[in-house]
């Protein structure tokens, strides 16, 4: 705000009536004309500046814009939404996909355990996750990260995920980390709009069509389990997994959060998660925590099991153990 009292034309104009005041009927002067011109120019420039936004209506349909939260959709709404999403997948990826919405199996609570004595860090699980869950191929996205840790320390600070050599190394052990499906999930409390929540079987899911992409949940998760879609995922048509769940592996839109969902489109139909099937060392054990005789419960009862960062009170449903 630099006043310039010496500019006499301005000064003259100053004494004139202001056209902005509707009640005062005053002919417009040079200044007001200039102001109008300035405002018009400003608006035009603004329009030009935000012109990249005009590409959005192509990608975001009115239906999508107005779509309600998953929990508020009736079965009928869901059918329409799924059809729309299937059409979009056809459009954008050229793939025929089916989107389903398997519900939690009543009475089932999922648990997962990894035998760290067996895991050799070969990363087959990461790759399987990438393929199964229609992850962005450009960045080889995966919900799993495998840490190579030094024997004799549980300190992740001495771990690395970027190791690139023959595994296993003699002085190392390998620890895959993915969403721990916390019983008390900080990510869910963080989300301002309930775009992520815990289902009855313990799986924490994200409604990719409700998330606003604030990434607060990503900051809240203590296990680096969440992934953000920094751009629209690229997947070659022939690599698209057509068996898709609305809350799980359907192709995610740009700008939203995603995370491991224990392959709920598989596990809620009784099948094993993709990472478990891919594991070449048999280090992974999956099952129903509520069934006393399940494999996972055998592990919990017979192995000395621990969870990551127990002190945070997140109560993971994901366990680790060593063969003694």
């Amino acid at each position: 705000m630099i006043a310039d009292d010496n500019s006499s034309p301005e000064r003259q104009a100053d004494t004139d009536k202001d056209w902005f005041l509707p009640v005062v009927d005053q002919p417009s002067t040079r200044r007001t004309a200039l102001k109008t011109a300035g405002a018009a120019l400003g608006l035009a420039a603004f329009g030009k500046a935000i012109s990249p936004l005009w590409s959005i209506p192509e990608n975001v349909s009115v239906d999508e814009f107005l779509q309600q939260h998953y929990k508020e959709l009736s079965d009928n709404d869901k059918q329409k939404v799924f059809q729309r999403l299937e059409a979009e997948a056809k459009d954008a990826y050229g793939a025929e996909v089916t989107i389903s919405d398997p519900k939690p199996i009543p009475g089932v609570r999922f648990g997962y355990a990894i035998n760290l004595s067996k895991c050799n860090g070969n990363g087959a699980c990461m790759e399987a996750c990438n393929r199964e869950n229609n992850h962005h191929r450009g960045v080889d996205q995966s919900y799993i990260r495998v840490l190579e840790m030094s024997k004799g320390s549980m300190d992740m600070e001495h771990g690395t995920t970027t190791y690139d050599h023959t595994v296993p190394q003699d002085d190392k052990f390998y620890m895959p980390v993915q969403c721990q499906q916390c019983e008390n999930p900080p990510c869910v409390s963080a989300c301002p709009i309930e775009a992520t929540w815990q289902e009855d079987d313990g799986i924490v899911v994200v409604d990719y069509n409700w998330c606003i992409g604030c990434r607060y949940c990503e900051a809240a998760c203590p296990y680096h389990a969440r992934r953000f879609n920094w751009e629209q995922p690229e997947i070659p048509t022939d690599e698209v997994n057509p068996d898709q769940g609305y809350l799980s592996n359907r192709i995610r839109p740009q700008g939203v959060m995603e995370k491991c969902h224990f392959c709920l489109h598989r596990t809620r139909e009784g099948r094993a998660p993709a990472c478990l099937e891919a594991c070449s060392t048999g280090a992974r054990v999956f099952g129903d925590l509520n069934a006393p005789d399940s494999d996972i419960n055998w592990v919990l009862k017979n192995k000395r099991v621990f969870v990551l960062k127990e002190e945070l009170g997140t109560q993971p449903n994901f366990f680790y153990f060593f063969d003694s």
């Binding site: 975001v60 939260h69 409390s189 989300c191 998330c211 700008g255």
Partner: peptide, 25 residues
């Protein structure tokens, strides 16, 4: 900072779905 500013309305009380009072945001 939002990935989906077009969904800003989800944050508006009543028509959106505010996770209040749990979420600090």
């Amino acid at each position: 900072d939002l990935g989906r500013p077009d969904r800003f309305w989800h944050l508006i009380p009543v028509i959106g779905r505010l996770n209040w009072p749990v979420s600090m945001l």
